[in-house]
């Protein structure tokens, strides 16, 4: 019981350390802010043009622009949330790295608290912080969609929140494993920069996978992060596609939209079902958890 209370105290301390560091908080929000600026400046019109070209190919003219506007926003929001689940986790885990660089970890080591409790506290705090930031971003995104065009069924909203729980777990475990090897500020900056700039590309969040060459597309689709993007894409897009269907877009047109904008994902021509994407991301979480436990065990034995 006491060890559990110690764990809660450490989690509370770690969360406070993150939110009291305004610079760290702002750095965590850089990726969503960049995507938002890109969306406002040109991505929105690019997406809408692409949607319209699909509609033209199938002889469909949407009667209501709100659905098209909403779909563009929903696509962006699925990108932002999938990327941020990792980038925010990497930034917020800076509390763990800072403890090493500033030798605060020694203060915890001279306390009668086990190294496992300290490591678990970092993990839980990182999960909570990342989830709070993600929920805030999701809330802002949902408000935007409600304004420009809301066509997401209630079940899909709940599914999105379920997806976030899973994706935050993935991001938290990934950052935990990577950053457990980092003990300098330089290392942390390098990893944060690399992840922030690269992750969106290698998980297919910044542009539709159909834009990539076939070989690259297959490799990217096979990566677990892309499955994270895939499940969010489906839950965000499904309602809009159904709305277009109800307005007269035939099933080939609907499939073309889903295929072209990653609502459906393929490896070598075979479609990956939704359950398989969940399996891939869950399996990866299990592997990362095993790696995290092994890292914690090795670190505690070394000293």
């Amino acid at each position: 019981m006491t060890e559990f209370k110690k764990l809660c105290a450490l989690v509370s301390r770690n969360v406070k350390c993150y939110f009291k560091d305004k610079f760290l908080f702002l750095v965590s929000l850089i990726t969503p802010m960049i995507l938002l600026v890109l969306f406002v400046t040109f991505l929105r019109s690019v997406y809408i043009q692409s949607f319209n070209s699909v509609f033209s190919a199938f002889g469909f003219t949407p009667a209501n622009n709100r659905v098209t506007e909403g779909l563009a926003g929903a696509w962006l929001l699925s990108s932002v949330l999938s990327v941020c689940s990792v980038t925010v986790a990497v930034c917020s885990n800076a509390v763990m790295v800072n403890d090493k660089t500033e030798n605060t970890i020694n203060d915890l080591r001279v306390s009668p608290v086990s190294g496992v409790t300290v490591s678990v506290a970092y993990f839980i705090a990182n999960y909570i912080v990342t989830l709070i930031v993600m929920l805030a971003v999701a809330a802002i995104g949902f408000i935007y969609l409600a304004i420009v065009g809301w066509y997401i069924p209630a079940a899909n909203v709940f599914a999105v929140f379920g997806d976030l729980l899973l994706l935050v777990l993935f991001g938290t475990l990934l950052s935990g494993v990577i950053e457990s090897f980092i003990s300098t500020q330089g290392g942390l900056s390098a990893v944060s920069t690399l992840v922030s700039s690269l992750y969106g590309f290698i998980c297919g969040a910044y542009m539709p996978l159909s834009q990539f060459a076939a070989g690259v597309r297959n490799v990217i689709t096979a990566l677990p992060g892309t499955s994270g993007v895939g499940i969010l894409r489906w839950h965000f897009m499904e309602g809009y596609i159904a709305e277009f269907g109800a307005a007269g877009l035939n099933e080939y047109g609907q499939k073309a939209l889903l295929d072209g904008f990653d609502g459906n994902m393929y490896i070598g021509g075979t479609q990956i079902p939704l359950w398989a994407m969940y399996a891939i991301i869950s399996g990866t979480c299990a592997l990362l958890l095993a790696a995290y436990i092994a890292t914690v065990a090795i670190k505690n034995r070394k000293k």
Binding site: A9, L10, T104, D107, P112
Partner: peptide, 20 residues
């Protein structure tokens, strides 16, 4: 080695918790 951004109170509270 205490937390620079936390108050003295928060620092002492979190460290006291480590001793139950």
């Amino acid at each position: 080695v205490l937390d620079r951004r936390l108050s003295a109170y928060d620092n002492l509270k979190s460290r006291a918790a480590m001793y139950g």
